[in-house]
Design a protein around this nucleic acid. Structure first.
Lengths: 207, 207, 207, 207
DNA sequence: TATGAATGAGGCTTCATTCAT
DNA sequence: TATGAATGAAGCCTCATTCAT
């Protein structure tokens, strides 16, 4: 969370912000394609159409880029979850997630299954990543609970906190399992998946 | 699956098989600790208490070790799933998985959450890994279905194939979500998790 | 000595001279702090509160700055020696040198032990530096001799040229040894040093 | 002083010791030629006729090589001082030092004026270097004092400790000044230098 | 005049892999 | 069979220098 003031988004010139964005997009592309470790700064530089040296004007080192990507990714996850709550049919929202995550070249979207899994694995080894992830997960979990507890008069289910605690966890397992599936079997029969999801999700939303 | 004949397990001398085993155990240890890319051949050689050069007598290169580890891992997954079916209480079996996966140093066991996730991510990029994984997943899924469909007279639930197809998929999502949780939040409250799992699993086992 | 005409001090506008001065002061500061090689143009630019690019309007490259600093330094050395001759007690003057040279942050003064030593070492490798230094040393030596030979009626010692030739060399060894000491042992007991210097200097000033 | 056990000279294989020696000789050569910072690992590798990577089997990084060279150099300095005490005429010994130090290519000897000066300058900036140097200087100073205090019946001067404290410091200044001269003016008239040294040294050896 | 973004070469270091022994 | 020395390519990063603005 604590960023170098130099790169603090609030004090960045438009140009600098633009460049950072370009680099992050390139990095995201390369990380998806090769993985965090296998992607080289040269790969990223090429994808960003700039020299490798220039990247270091905007990021102090490679791992800060990784971290920035992880933070961005976490934000996307949160948005996904919010979309899930906002959608008429949560199953549709989940399916959309699956399809997007398993797309071979998700250029436009930060969230990507392989990245998500690698990030999760990295949390096991890198304290900084672990912290970033933990924070993101807390937000995600809260979001799930608020969704389940939203009163009926607001169009929600109005689940009791005692139950929502368990159910939100179950939902997280499901969503994260979806990410694993997206990576391991991107060609999974979507109809079958939809049915399976529909069943579980509905069971989980009953009081 | 198509292995170099030289290393085909059926033609291997006992000595060779032993050495391969030693190397794989060491590699597993290192991959868990550092990740596939960050673990070096030197790390593995040291963990195996042999010279780096010797490893190349048993494996043509690093990625063949990775592949072998992935295959072994898949076998362990299968065993986990079988244990799940065999246990009196599947929830207990799941909890055991979670605890083992999230252990900081699972020296004795091949299956490990971080490894599983990294492997899954790698499937996105490496065709060979993808194939190995796909095969493993099919076996796993079949196992789940057989468990759900086991006739009542044999102590099973006797679920109908039409339903078990969906439910086995849901179970996989759950189990794989568990792996993600184990990596992202190893200190997760196990009591809460048990309750959440119990609820979903029981719902999924109802006709 | 042969400078680029563009930067010849005689043809420089006051503005340009001012800028050069600012750069040199910054460079001196950085060279003392980091050493000739470790100090970067970016460091110097920051210390001079100007852009890196602008420096190149006043100096063709980094090594020309190094050379300019060396020349300035030589001038300071000469002043030190003159101060030594002019002071009532040469030992006091030497002590002052030592203290200034070994100061951690001699911001105001160009002469600095570490810089002096690095410069001397560089003379071994760079012909231009060697020339600059040789010239400076000749002036310094002459200064010493003139001081020793100054007639008694002018308040001097009136040493004979035959002897002053040797003694001035001995004095240089002493002063330069002082620079080495300042770098190697800046916390050297100044009282002891004063006594040691007093003894030798007085012996060297006897006919 | 505290070395990595792996590189502890007492546990090194003959081969390893040989290689370390080869690397150090090459490094010494390059450091003299280019300076500590300007000499690259590639330079050293080439001079040692081995690949750059191989150097890292024997030294963990460049600065450990620098430190090793500094330690060796300090040992040579000590030997020089001992030779000075042991020689019939200390002035001869000093002259020999000067000549050796100022040789353009002192391949056989570690001690070299430029290296000595650069080391001294580096002590200003690097704590590890400062420590190594401080230790070396203490030994050197002790050596000087023991020489001056050696009783007459053993062929010494038998100087009193009170005086030797000052005189040994003066001698160090002189010797170190000699190093500076060797770097700054390697073509200095040796006859003149000898006379100058003879005079001061003899004065310093009188009670 | 002044900026600072941009480059490209080069520096240090690691590591999979080979090979003489 | 086993070692571990050796290599070379590649990775990350820094920096003097240039150039469009």
């Amino acid at each position: 969370m604590s960023r170098d003031d130099k790169n603090d988004e609030t004090t960045l010139s438009p140009r600098a912000r633009e460049q950072r964005e370009r680099i992050l997009a390139a990095a995201q592309h390369c990380f998806v394609k090769y993985g965090f470790h296998a992607a080289s700064m040269a790969n990223i530089a090429e994808a960003a159409a700039m020299s490798a040296g220039l990247i270091y004007r905007y990021f102090p080192n490679k791992s800060s880029i990784v971290l920035a990507i992880i933070e961005r990714q976490s934000e996307m996850e949160l948005e996904d979850i919010r979309a899930l709550g906002a959608s008429t049919d949560p199953v549709d929202a989940l399916m959309e997630c699956f399809v997007e995550w398993s797309r071979p070249r998700p250029d436009m979207r930060i969230m990507n299954a392989a990245l998500f899994l690698e990030t999760s694995a990295e949390a096991t080894r890198d304290k900084q990543v672990a912290n970033a992830i933990h924070h993101a997960d807390e937000l995600a979990c809260t979001e799930f609970r608020q969704w389940l507890e939203k009163p009926a008069e607001e169009g929600g289910i109005g689940m009791s906190p005692a139950i929502s605690e368990r159910r939100s966890l179950a939902l997280m397992l499901l969503v994260e399992g979806l990410a694993v599936r997206a990576a391991r079997d991107p060609k999974l029969d979507t109809e079958l998946l939809r049915e399976a999801l529909a069943e579980v999700v509905h069971k989980l939303m009953e009081e």
